[in-house]
Design a protein around this nucleic acid. Sequence first.
RNA 1: GCGUCUGUAGCUCAACCGGAUAGAGCAACGGCCUUCUAAGCCGUAGGUUGCAGGUUCGAUUCCUGCCAGGCGCACCA
Length: 568
Amino acid sequence: MKQALEQALEQALVKLLRDHPDAPVPPVVLMRPKEKGHGDYAANVAMPLARLLKQSPQQIAGAILDVVVWPDAVEAADIAGPGFINIRLKKASEANVLKTIIEQGEAYGRVVAGEQATKVNIEFVSANPTGPMHVGHGRGAVVGDALASLLLATGNHVQREYYINDAGAQIGVLANSVWLRIQELNGEQVEFPEGAYPGEYIVQIAGEVLAAHDYQTLLAMDDDARLSLIGQLAIDANMVMIRNDLDAIGIHFDHFFSEQSLHASGRVDALIKRLQTEGVVYRGTLPPPKGKETTDYQPVEHLLFRTTDFGDDVDRPLAKQDGTPTYFAADIAYHYDKHLRGFDRMIDIWGADHGGYVTRVQAAMKALIQREAQPDVLLVQMVNLTRDGLPVKMSKRAGTFVTLREVVDEVGRDAVRFNFMTRRVESQLDFDLESAKKQNDENPVYYVQYAHARIAAILRKAESEGVVVGDVDDVDLSELTTHEEQRLISHLLAYPDALIKAADRLEAYRVATYVMRLAADFHSFYHKHRVVTEDANLSMARMVLIRAVAQVIANALGILGVSAPDRM
RNA sequence: GCGUCUGUAGCUCAACCGGAUAGAGCAACGGCCUUCUAAGCCGUAGGUUGCAGGUUCGAUUCCUGCCAGGCGCACCA
């Protein structure tokens, strides 16, 4: 509907601007006014034209209305305020959306991806396989998963991907930490060095390793072989744990991608060679870092990627002092690999602590594949975990940090997911364990779910009294005349547009704010009007209305990965 | 110091890629359960949108400069 109106206005503008061939036709963007008196849609096109045409916005709006050809559903259009065109739709045509919703069910608001649809790869979580996920990972996980669902619902092919950082120095630390615990389990006196992973899960992994491999055999191995074996077992064990925890919050990936496999298959080396042939690599020395204690700075010659040619501040090393590739080198190869796998679009969801990394990856991709398939990077800001308003003390070193799993087990999956979705990713998020557990107004998830459960209760009640809607087409929706009913209808009508807008901007949290408002409108309706009444026609119409509301609540919550219960 | 994100009611956040009178929840105060779920609803009060300029018919939104906070700043990932 929105698009039909925009088209009508655009055609009117084209006619109107014939006398001004050099004047650009301004884009028509319709709004849904918050004020009901301002109609169902409003257009502001007349105002930007005022200066150009040297007429008042009101005059221009009048001229537009003289030539415009509206779709049938338009009841009236008039000029208001400083030059807005307010459009009012015929009531019946708006209410028809209820039938559409009930007919389409879960499909309402969704666009099915066709052959030509964009292939999107969305990479998120990617927590290192060195330990359990913390709450910050959880936010990224929930945001990424919801965004993936949203893009899927708006007509894209979507692959959810997890990049396993199973290479590099950290894996050595992990292997060593486990080995120390193995020795300890065998009665050795061991010293834990600074930087070793302290968590209890390391002891568990040590136990698992011992169950599969004899201690004497391990001792007899040479150091490299032993650490490599233990490292792989530890990575596997941690990934099992991570997958379990993701499962507990309802997140499933289509693809796990191993960094190690990039190195092993020679793709990292090949990538570096390719960059060399393109002449963007040189040997050089970097200046000392700014703003940090630089006492240990030693000028070192590196293999450097000239990212400054592509918008970066300094050139970035592709190889470490010992000649092995940096994480950055592997990451370029990884993103390039996504491109080769045929994705039209890639989205990375990273923690805010990786903010400084965005430019160099984008610079690298610019060098490799020019304009196409540049990664969109969403930086998810920190989560401040509190309990009753007091910060929860966390120390990774002491191993006392709160894991995502603990939080999910304590407050529940729906509450965690919904709370993480109620803010823009750019905002830091305060997450209070006690508030999230409370089943009251402090907790928006129950507010929305409650609306759904309430509707289910009403429908049960109606059924028990023998009030049942047979064929939706037989119901007279013109019974729905009250302010509250009209609000609900227009809100339901806006759902597909809300999804599209959220998807365009990669802002899945909008789905959460949408559904909170829909629930508010429903609660408001509920208290003012009864569904099951003496008047059979009215009851039927209202049942159709609330069934549609429940459907859209369920659809929206589905995108967020939150359940829509029938009873609470 | 540089980069980046944030700054809106006492608190936590919205505000539809620049639109009409800046809105919700919590906290405060006052109402509403013999009728479909009170995990709810209605009302009152609460604002110099961090500060100062600029662009615009119009700025919470865009630009510049300050102030405050988070994150990051070679050879880790």
